[in-house]
Simulated scan of single mutants.
Amino acid sequence: MNFHRALPVVGTCMAITFFSPLTSAESRIDRQTETAVPRAQNLYGIGVGVLPKTSGSDEYRALVLPIINANYGDRFFINALQAGAWLVDSEDKRLRFGLSAEAKFGWDASKGDRTRGMDDRDFSIFVGPLLRWQTDYGTLNAQWTTDASGNSNGQQFQVQYIKSLLRSPNLRLNGLVGATWNSQKFNNYYFGVRNNEVNASRPFYRAGSGVEWQAGINGMMPVMTNHSLLFGAFITRLSDEQYDSPITETRIQPMAYVGYSIPF
């Protein structure tokens, strides 16, 4: 269910040149669009996510996961499967540069019709720099990550735009669009077919790099004092390199979740 190597270097130089660290100026952070999931305060809870069983699968699996969407000292953050720290900021904290680590699910090959008999793809941790720019029209995120677990040795570069669609006491709703460039090693790990995995209906396949596209909505609805119902749904359009894989069944990959947060 997330681009070019020069961009993180440029972003780092800009951050060092133009940002001022740990400023005491008044923060103008928009908490609703700070993350894809809208919020006004820290959220802690549990949820159920539904996602494809394997890469490109048209069947789905459900996972029960803890929900944490929180800031600590306005410097450290946890956002679902991502955690990190902001290192330098603009004075109003609407432009921030930091580092993050993000978990990416693998899959059990025995669960997919087209992957049965292949090796499993393992759970991985991707790490790298993150740039966030909040404007009056929404929030832009740019993130480059590399596979620190060494499973794929792949890289990703993601750009994401988050827009507030609705703000009210009874419902908060965000819209999201984004694009993710996946390196050749990333795509080949998750969508490739190795020599030892070939069979009569599954030829050898080496995937190249490519760009996938995402769009979705995320919402939060208060249900009682400090309790909230969280929900979201989005789709990913696979790149040509991913879609051409013999293990891919459908190009459009939907995902959804629902959760409940409680006071902490």
Score class of each variant (00 low, 15 high):
Gln253Leu: 08
Ala70Val: 02
Pro169Asn: 05
Ala6Thr: 14
Gly128Thr: 10
Gly216Tyr: 05
Val159Tyr: 02
Ala207Asn: 05
Ile247Trp: 01
Val159Leu: 12
Leu65Glu: 04
Leu171Ile: 11
Gly84Pro: 01
Leu166Thr: 00
Phe204Asn: 12
Thr139Ile: 09
Gln214Pro: 00
Leu43Cys: 02
Ile16Asp: 08
Leu81Lys: 00
Arg167Trp: 00
Phe18Asn: 11
Lys163Pro: 00
Thr146His: 13
Asp74Thr: 02
Arg172Trp: 10
Asn153Asp: 15
Arg237Gly: 13
Ser57Met: 02
Val223Pro: 05
Glu102Ser: 12
Asn71Cys: 03
Arg94Thr: 11
Val223Lys: 01
Asn182Trp: 02
Trp107Phe: 15
Ser228Lys: 01
Gly117Gln: 07
Asn195Gly: 14
Val48Trp: 07
Asn69Ile: 13
Phe126Glu: 15
Arg206Tyr: 08
Leu165Ser: 06
Thr236Gln: 13
Asp122Trp: 01
Glu59Met: 09
Phe19Asp: 14
Ser55Val: 04
Ser201Leu: 13
Ser239Gly: 05
Arg94Cys: 06
Cys13Val: 15
Gly259Glu: 08
Thr250Gln: 14
Asp240Tyr: 00
Asn2Ser: 15
Thr248Phe: 02
Gln82His: 01
Ser201Trp: 03
Leu229Trp: 09
Asn182Ala: 12
Asn226Glu: 15
Thr115Leu: 09
Pro129Phe: 06
Ala148His: 04
Phe191Ala: 06
Phe204Asp: 03
Leu238Ala: 05
Thr225Val: 11
Gly106Glu: 06
Leu171Arg: 03
Phe77Met: 02
Thr146Leu: 13
Asp147Tyr: 07
Pro263Arg: 09
Tyr44Ile: 12
Phe77Asp: 00
Ser27Gly: 10
Tyr243Met: 00
Ala103Thr: 09
His4Arg: 14
Gly45Cys: 09
Leu65Asp: 04
Asn187Gly: 06
Arg114Ala: 12
Ile217Arg: 00
Ser149Tyr: 06
Ala256Cys: 10
Ile16Ser: 12
Pro52Thr: 01
Asn151Leu: 07
Ile67Tyr: 05
Gly208Arg: 03
Asn188Pro: 04
Ala80Thr: 09
Ala36Asn: 11
Phe105Asn: 03
Gly112His: 02
Glu212Asp: 14
Tyr161Asp: 07
Pro246Val: 07
Gly45Gln: 03
Val223His: 01
Arg167Leu: 10
Ile46Asp: 05
Ala25Cys: 13
Ala148Gln: 05
Arg121Cys: 08
